[in-house]
Every structure is written in structure tokens, then in C-alpha cells.
């Protein structure tokens, strides 16, 4: 108190420094995105004439429609990123839904319906979280071959579900062990069985962890490139692979504006998910640590 005569000024200074740092950091992360957006609205002529980094003189959506539905990618008949984007959606929705549901059920069983060896089962499942993608490529392609699912969307979905269940189970299990066990005991005495307890008692309490899991799985699966490139054929490739093929098509001159637009298109769904549900994501991540 004695040292700083006017504490409010000290506060303002501290705030100013804090905000300055935050703005710099935010700018550092935002600049590439801004550059991408700006470039995507410039025409190729303009880019060729001037600098790579420059404010657009004319504003056009040409690059976007090129990337979306006109650019020739590989030797495909259909043009643009659109078919890849649709593949991604067809892949991500069932993958996220199935892996999340399985994770919730696993977590529920591992927390409230323990059986002999359930701890071991959980430990074994956790190993899945530490397996690098690369480690399962060969056995998984072998397996998909046996199942007759090589190169199909279903095979890709299966791969994502299996790989994701370790994580989703971990999330739900760690959330559920913090719920009071008496809830399930009371419900059992009230006459409720396995499914009734799950749907009427446990699931309604799972909103925070559901959001976390869905966001996590959505970003993981949407952004995945490795599984997408290994386990698909041209008809089932996801947008990440499509983008890669588009950018790396070596015919003609590099179309920076189209590449940028394509990259934004490929990233758009995850950005939207974060903006819409990010608040719940942070809340859900910390939910387990606070009692009540």
C-alpha cells in the first residue's frame, strides 16, 4: 500500500502490459489466417504482378468457386473440393457419433457396473491412446482387406471409430467416476435397469463431457490425413487428401488464391465447431475438477 500511492494506476499499467502481450500473441496466430483470407480474394493476375503479401485491389470470389467446384484435381471427372468435402462429412458424422456413444457406454460400465477385470480392461483400452497412427496402418489395412472394406468409406469410419474409442472412453470414464455412486444405487433400488439408468440418470448429466468428446473427435477425424490417404481410394478420399492433391497438382502455374481458398474450405467446419461450442469445451474440460 505504502509503495504505490495510487493503486489504480498500477492496475492500469499491469492491464496494459497484459493486453499488449495478448494482442501480440493473438496477432501472431491470426496473421497467417488473415493472409490466407486476403489472398483467397485476390486474382491470380494481381498476385503475379505484385507482391505475394498485399491488400487486394479487386475483390473476387473466383478463387473460392474454383476451389469448391471447378479446379481439376488429379484425373477425376468431378471437379473441385466438393466431392471430397462431402466424403468428409459422410465420414465424420457416423465416426463421431458411434465413437462417442461407445465411449459413453464404456465409461458408464467401467464406472458403475464394474466386473472382474474391468480395471485391466480399462488399462488395456488406455494403451490405445498412446498408439501412434503409424503403428496401426499395416494391421488395419490387413484387417480391412479381410473384411472387404478396403478403400471404402465404411472402412475409414470403422478405423476412426476403433481408434477414437480409447479417447472417448477415457473422457467419459473420468467424468463418470466423479459422479456420486449413490445415484446409481438409488436408481437400482427404484427398480431401474442398466439402460434406464443410463438414459434417464447418467446421460442427462453428461452434457459437458459430451460436448468435449464431440469436439475432440470431430477435429481429430476431420483433420486426419494419414488414415484418409492410406485407407481410401479416389471415390472415398476426405477433404484433407483432396486439398493435398489439389495443392500438389503439378500441372501449370501455382494458383495461390485457389490454394488458400481451398485450405480455408477444408478448415471451415472445425472453426465453426469451435466458435459454436468452444465455450462448453473449456467448461467441460474443467468440469471434473470442481465438485457439485
Amino acid at each position: 500500500m505504502a509503495k504505490s500511492k495510487n493503486p489504480s494506476y498500477a492496475n492500469i499499467n499491469a492491464r496494459a502490459v497484459l493486453y499488449a502481450v495478448l494482442i501480440i500473441v493473438a496477432a501472431y496466430y491470426l496473421l497467417p489466417l488473415i493472409l490466407m483470407i486476403v489472398t483467397s480474394f485476390r486474382s491470380m493476375d494481381e498476385i503475379r504482378m505484385g507482391q505475394l503479401i498485399e491488400w487486394p485491389k479487386t475483390f473476387s470470389f473466383d478463387a473460392w468457386s474454383m476451389a469448391w467446384s471447378e479446379v481439376q484435381i488429379g484425373a477425376r471427372e468431378e471437379r473441385g473440393l466438393r466431392p471430397y468435402f462431402i466424403n468428409s462429412i459422410l465420414m465424420v458424422i457416423p465416426s463421431v457419433a458411434i465413437s462417442t456413444i461407445l465411449g459413453a457406454l464404456n465409461g458408464y460400465v467401467l464406472s458403475f457396473w464394474k466386473f472382474r477385470g474391468s480395471e485391466l480392461f480399462f488399462a488395456a483400452l488406455l494403451i490405445g491412446c498412446f498408439l501412434p497412427f503409424q503403428a496401426i496402418l499395416l494391421p488395419q489395412s490387413q484387417l480391412l482387406g479381410w473384411l472387404g472394406l478396403s478403400g471404402s468409406l465404411v472402412g475409414l469410419i470403422l478405423t476412426h471409430v476403433v481408434y477414437g474409442v480409447s479417447f472417448t472412453t477415457l473422457f467419459f470414464r473420468n467424468y463418470y467416476v466423479n459422479l456420486p455412486h449413490e445415484l446409481v444405487k438409488a436408481a437400482k433400488l427404484d427398480g431401474a435397469g442398466f439402460w434406464v439408468i443410463f438414459f434417464r440418470i447418467i446421460l442427462p448429466l453428461s452434457a459437458p463431457i459430451l460436448v468435449v468428446t464431440v469436439i475432440w473427435q470431430f477435429t481429430q477425424i476431420w483433420n486426419d490425413f494419414l488414415f484418409g490417404v492410406v485407407f481410401s481410394d479416389p471415390s472415398s478420399q476426405p477433404v484433407t487428401v483432396g486439398l493435398n492433391n489439389m495443392v500438389n497438382s503439378s500441372t501449370g502455374e501455382k494458383q495461390y488464391n485457389v490454394d488458400m481458398a481451398g485450405a480455408i474450405i477444408a478448415a471451415l467446419p472445425t472453426i465453426v465447431v469451435y466458435v459454436v461450442a468452444g465455450k462448453y469445451f473449456v467448461r467441460g474440460l474443467t468440469a471434473g475438477s470442481v465438485k457439485g
Binding site: 456420486p180 449413490e182 445415484l183 444405487k185 438409488a186 436408481a187 435397469g193 440418470i201 448429466l205
Partner: peptide, 20 residues
């Protein structure tokens, strides 16, 4: 026998009310 077949009602020390 499973709890639901015993036809017993219990009040728990921790109440165990369904929060939702």
C-alpha cells in the same frame, strides 16, 4: 437377487437425489 427384485426402499446418507 438384484436390488430391484428385493423390493426395498432406502434413504442414503448422501441423499443421492437425481440432479437432473
Amino acid at each position: 437377487e438384484a436390488p430391484k427384485d428385493r423390493d426395498i426402499a432406502m434413504v442414503f446418507q448422501s441423499y443421492a437425489l437425481y440432479p437432473n
